[in-house]
Each structure stands twice: as structure tokens, then as C-alpha cells.
Amino acid sequence: MGNPMKILVIEDDETTGAYITDGLRQEGHSVDYIDTGNDGLVQATVGQYDVIVVDRMLPGIDGLAVVKTLRGAGQKAPVLMLTALGGVEDRIEGLNAGADDYLVKPFAFGELSARINALGRRPPVSDEPTVLSARDLEMNLLTRKVTRGGQEIDLLPREFALLEHLLRRKGRVQTRTMLLESVWDIHFDPQTNVVETHISRLRAKVDKPFDTELIKTVRGSGYRIDVE
């Protein structure tokens, strides 16, 4: 699943650390696990990592300081910051310090994995494409027309935005929270399953009338449009 990456995990809680490390290794990544901020900072500067996962609260140098120091030293590796339960405000601090994404504990492993994959090495984007496609589906970003098998599909603006987001991240899982955050800029947790409804509406137009399913549900994680 995904392309194997070199990942550094800096987390002081052993249970959580082991869980993350084991899970990521099972997905085929190579993982280094460090349990203090000081050692983590050293390791992050010497090793060449594709993604660094760092807990916000660490004994000694805390996660924020680690990220700040790394960024100050010109380290560009993407950082996913883990914040404790209730640390809604930590998100802003984390992002300000230079983290690229954040995740509130406790999280499902699928969520962590999807976010790490989203952060990891991306194929260098050439020019901004004007047409996105998957199998027989085409989305023209200029004319805002969507066709499947030559047949035009009429989408509401919000459906268009959701489909565009999934198409741009073809082959990568997008979790519900990731969609909420990036499509609707919602960084809190609604009590209702709003994302599911949006997806099923989109599917009703994009998938239902055709024989192959484009938008896949990834169990326990989220949704993905596969690369053929």
C-alpha cells in the first residue's frame, strides 16, 4: 500500500509508540522510533526522513520546540504533530511552529496512515493540470464540466469540489476528517456523519449510473479514487 517511506516517530508513550511503529512497519514503511524530544531532534537532523511524526507533549524538549528547531535549521521533512485529547488550540500552535499536519489523540490507525501518506513524497507536480481524470471520468477545471464515458454529469458546486479533491489525490486514502478539513475547512468534530452523505450524493451521480465504482470506501479509514 502506497510507496514505502522512511519515517521517524518521536513519542514518549510506549503503548502508543509501539502501536504506531508496528502499524507503519506492517504497511511496509521503514520506521525509527525515539521516545524523547532531545534524542528525536538529533535523529531528525542526521537521518533523511520522508515524514516525521512527533508528539506535542514530550519530556525535555517538547514537540513544538523540536519542530521549531528543525525548521530553524532548514529541515524541510514534512511533520505530522500528534496532539493530546482536547488540544484543539494546539493545532494552531503546531501549525505556527512549522508542522504540516496535526492529529488529535486518540486516533484510528487508518487516520494516521492516511495523513502520513498524504504528507509523504508526492510525485513532482508539473504544470497545473486543466483536466483531471480517472478511468473514463474527466473533470475540466476550466469549463467546470464533468463527463463519464462521454456522458455529462451535472454536479452542485460542493459536489464538484469534493470530487476535485479526491481526483487530485488519486491513489491516496482521504479520511472523513481530512475531507472535512480540506474541502470544507471544518476543524472540529461534527456529531453527525455529514461526510458520508456528501459522498453518497456524489456517488449517486458519478458511480450509480455506471458499472464500475470509482469512489472506493476503505474500511476503517475513508475514501479513495484508485489509480488505474
Binding site: D13, T15, T16, Y19, A84, L85, G86, K105, P106, A108, F109
Partner: peptide
């Protein structure tokens, strides 16, 4: 109390996943 329970809750959640 809430603060002190954060880590245990997180662990329980992790253990349940396992």
C-alpha cells in the same frame, strides 16, 4: 481529572484497536 485521563484513554483506544 480530564487531563490525567487523557493518556489512559488514548491507551485503551490503542489496545482496543490491537
Amino acid at each position: 481529572i480530564a487531563h490525567d485521563l487523557k493518556t489512559p484513554i488514548q491507551r485503551v483506544s490503542v489496545l482496543l484497536s490491537r
